[in-house]
Design a binder for these strands. Structure first.
Lengths: 174, 174
DNA sequence: CATCTTAAGTCAGCCTTGTTGACATTCCAA
DNA sequence: TTGGAATGTCAACAAGGCTGACTTAAGATG
């Protein structure tokens, strides 16, 4: 069995062995890696947002609206996991600035369906391009097998509710 | 470069292969997974901190002080990547509450060296136990190979400065 | 020795983004 | 017709970032 530079044994490990390598030290390194990596993960879009009058919260809203055009406010709230008051502040400025269009639902007129305008789509594209560029670089450097493992661990780290939300987004839910 | 049990080199993968699977859709899934997973990652310690008068910032300070007892304030600032004013607010309350001890340096008396008191160590242990439990569950579920990949991608996602900080922590830097 | 620089701390004020609580409107559904 | 859901809004507050300005102590260097 080989040991890589992270000190994590790879090779044929039985489930009994799997317990062995989960020392507190290994776990702590993973925790710290997650902390540092998350900063790298957000740095590119953050740099773009700086100067524009927007923050990370705006980016997140734009991202998920782009992902599911026509998405209802309620669904966006569930995905983001914040209060409607918090979301509203962000959403209002995006609507006022003409980046997001909020249309009254046709079937149920209480609902608002959210769409990106051309300007909104343009900013979203710019932000997500920057973030994908970073992600792509990391993926390339680590290689395809590492990426598969990365995704597996992330899925396992989500709590159940979020895993469901993520899955429904992945599979084109609305 | 290491070769895993599938005989596929990880590290320098020919750029042709790497490009194949890096569709924008794949990258977006990774981005969203990172977003959702980070929430799961912080939820356990957050739950403990709620009710105590502390927040995530206190947790981070406790974590890194525990990691390197006697750490200088300057070094903690560099690791956390925040301003001294921000850190000071957090550190002051930890010191006042008797969780952290700040001692004047012996060699260079300008420096303050930070230590956890017994109470501080106890809280830190409680927080980090909770976070390790989550991490351990995710690692177990994903398996050792996935964990190795996870770590590789995270390392690649850090920017250079943070990778250095992380490495120095990993290798017992002070 | 005099001066420059570094480490640390502090005060004041500001911004973003989260939180509660209260309340209005609209409208589906029982 | 009435209850409850979805949405929006106002007000107030907290955490945790930020900048700018200034002090104190002490090492480093000419």
């Amino acid at each position: 069995m080989s040991i890589n530079r992270h000190g994590i044994s790879i090779g044929e490990v039985s489930s009994g062995d799997a317990l062995l390598f989960l020392t507190d030290e290994q776990l702590r390194q993973g925790i710290e890696a997650m902390f540092f990596a998350y900063r790298g993960f957000t740095s590119a879009p953050d740099a773009i947002l700086e100067g524009l009058d927007y923050g990370r919260a705006h980016h997140r809203a734009l991202h998920f609206i782009a992902r599911g055009q026509g998405m209802k406010v309620k669904r966006l709230l569930d995905i983001l996991g914040i209060t409607k008051q918090s979301l509203n502040r962000v959403l209002r400025s995006l609507i006022e600035d003409g980046l997001v269009d909020s249309r009254v639902g046709t079937a149920d007129k209480r609902e608002r369906h959210l769409y990106l305008t051309e300007a909104g789509a343009a900013l979203e594209a710019r932000l997500s391009e920057a973030q994908r560029r970073q992600m792509r670089a990391a993926y390339r450097q680590a290689g395809p097998e590492a990426v598969a493992g990365f995704r597996m661990v992330l899925e396992a780290m989500m709590d159940t509710g979020m895993r469901a939300a993520h899955a429904s987004l992945r599979d084109g839910g609305t």
